[in-house]
Design a protein around this nucleic acid. Structure first.
Lengths: 340, 340
DNA sequence: CCAATTTTGATGTACGTAAATCAAAAAATC
DNA sequence: GATTTTTTGATTTACGTACATCAAAATTGG
């Protein structure tokens, strides 16, 4: 049986009340006594029973998710997963609130973050916009002891406790190798469709992609990036235009708005053998993978990201360790054969 | 605030004791009263606070893991993950015991399963050997209301509550498509190295592999399967022999014992361009992927499988729902760029 | 209608922790 | 050494549920 506070009290030769004072860092304990108790805790290997403690405290975990107000399938999916988590919240003692902020707007994000320091949530998850002022705001909150995790898009160099998202450089590299290997000995040009180069995850994917292309597939030339703003209409126009170039033999779509890409491919490339790699599994990309319009899809599991963010925030709020391997968000690679 | 037993008692106009009798199916409640209480439970949306209930009951979850005594990296990894789970067991209220049985020995497995019905664990996870008598033993235990999940290798057609492992047919299909696409227009022969065709997961991988090969890559001919018994030495000999055939341009290793495969490749195929796909990420396959001896690794995350099996068994023991998407074990595809 | 039986209520204890109160003891200050 | 302050102990209540006991009420059978 694991030791209880009573065992600690007995072992340290103090009363229950004193153990409680030490455990919950309440004042009125001499340094020597505190050390006696801490020694007993260490020696008996005491760990507080979180379930019992939460019961006694009537504790809930008020969490805030800050999301960009983007109208694409991935963000809709992320929202849906958060709603699922809200459904489970009574069982998990969470109390989740989402805040939408304009996309790509550091000032708005900072304003929301500032506001939170008054609200006192016990954890914050945000889809970070990569800007110095956001980093500063996050660092300030971390210093005020708020657990913070970045979601989907990281804030490298900030003090955030955890990043619940994929390694986008690795994603770009993987896309390059898949595309290069699928194309084999063929020579030609590669079109790259991104959302915006202002977003860190897109920049990183491109960075990884171009690196591997340059190192390993010199016969493939990357054309200037098309910025589709994650908008199906814009993406459609850009890709349709680009396909006028007969030298294109491959496409890498590293952002959202794939609905437009797929339409363009079906209109303009029926008679050509194109190899296409896209990000994010949605109803559209899934259908395109099945009908061979797309050859592979790289995906991050939004459900896993949300659940992971919640687990990590709760653990940090309680000062507990997380299972690192469990919280690593993988890059899923889907061919038509291993679709879920 | 979520409703408590007190709220139910008040709403149903009965005492706490009666609510308790209904909730814990104790005798001595008239049918009409029982229905009143059940209606109140439904209308208030009461769900028992599992944490509080476990605290009161002093409940632990005695779980049994039954594993084959196989000496390969994957099984070692699985064992290590179970040990990790045992380390966490006090916090998770689990009490995990593992039992080793001779591999590929249905009778031994059945004997262990029989023995368990006396021991009364609250959940059983087993790496199933696919045989009718095993199926029968599992079905019997399920009828005795033991929660049972199969791990890594399934028992299709049995009554097991859940399978914590990958879809092996999909895995084989994925391997075929990767290999076919990587080889592009080349024609030639494909060597397949398996552990044993007596194991269901290997049979299924092969089935998926040959199906896609036949459908989509008619220029690639599959050679007779080499059965390496998941043993590095045997695998080495078989592959080294097979590589005498100059027509081989690809290898699919769907079982364990890849250490031998890799050694054979390094000895016999330095001067050839072979495309190799293997299963299970281990120190050996990882190194081979990095030095380009292997082109892709298909993997199942043993840690995820173990944690999932535990979550599912606990949920079943409490009669609770599981998050399906969370418990789906994915087929990980690793290229050298997205290694964890 | 009475006795036997079943059903229900009232109450208490327990699980491991949190948090509060008040008294007692120890230490620090003058 | 007396006084003030700090530290510690003892005790209680609470969280939501489980489980046991005993008495009271309701129902059933004869």
């Amino acid at each position: 049986m694991r030791p209880t506070v009573h065992d600690i009290a007995a072992a340290a030769g103090v009363s229950l009340a004193t153990v409680d004072r030490v455990l919950n860092q309440r004042p009125g304990v001499r340094q020597v006594t505190r050390e006696k108790v801490e020694t007993a805790i260490r020696e008996l290997g005491y760990v507080r029973d979180v379930a019992a403690a939460n019961l006694a405290k009537g504790r809930t975990y008020p969490l805030v998710f800050i999301l960009p107000a983007s109208d694409n399938s991935f963000m809709h999916g992320l929202n849906a997963e958060i709603r699922q988590a809200i459904v489970r919240s009574s069982a998990e003692r969470t109390d989740i609130r989402t805040i939408e902020v304009p996309a790509f707007d550091p000032a708005a994000l900072v304003a929301v973050l500032e506001g939170l320091s008054r609200e006192k949530p016990c954890g914050i998850a945000l889809v970070a916009t990569d800007a110095p002022e956001v980093r500063a705001a996050v660092d300030r909150l971390v210093r005020e002891r708020f657990p913070i995790v970045t979601l989907v898009s990281d804030l490298t160099g900030s003090l955030r406790h955890h990043y619940a998202g994929v390694d986008n450089i690795a994603a770009g590299r993987t896309a390059a190798r898949l595309l290069g290997r699928f194309l084999g000995p063929r020579k030609g040009e590669i079109a790259v469709l991104a959302g915006s180069m202002l977003v860190r995850d897109h920049r990183e994917r491109l960075e990884g992609f171009t690196a591997v292309m340059a190192e390993e597939f010199p016969d493939l030339a990357i054309l200037p990036v098309l910025e589709g703003r994650d908008d199906p209409e814009v993406a459609h126009r850009l890709v349709a235009d680009a396909l006028g170039n007969a030298g294109i033999i491959g496409v890498y779509s590293l952002g959202a708005g794939n609905r437009g890409l797929i339409r363009a491919l079906k209109e303009k490339a029926v008679d050509r053998v194109l190899t296409v790699i896209a990000h994010e599994l949605t109803v559209h990309t899934r259908a395109a993978l099945i009908d061979n319009t797309i050859d592979a899809i790289l995906n991050q599991d939004a459900g896993h990201e949300v659940r992971s963010a919640i687990r990590v925030l709760k653990a940090k709020a309680d000062g507990l360790a997380v299972i690192e391997a469990q919280e690593r968000i993988r890059l899923d690679i889907f061919l038509k054969d291993n679709l879920p």
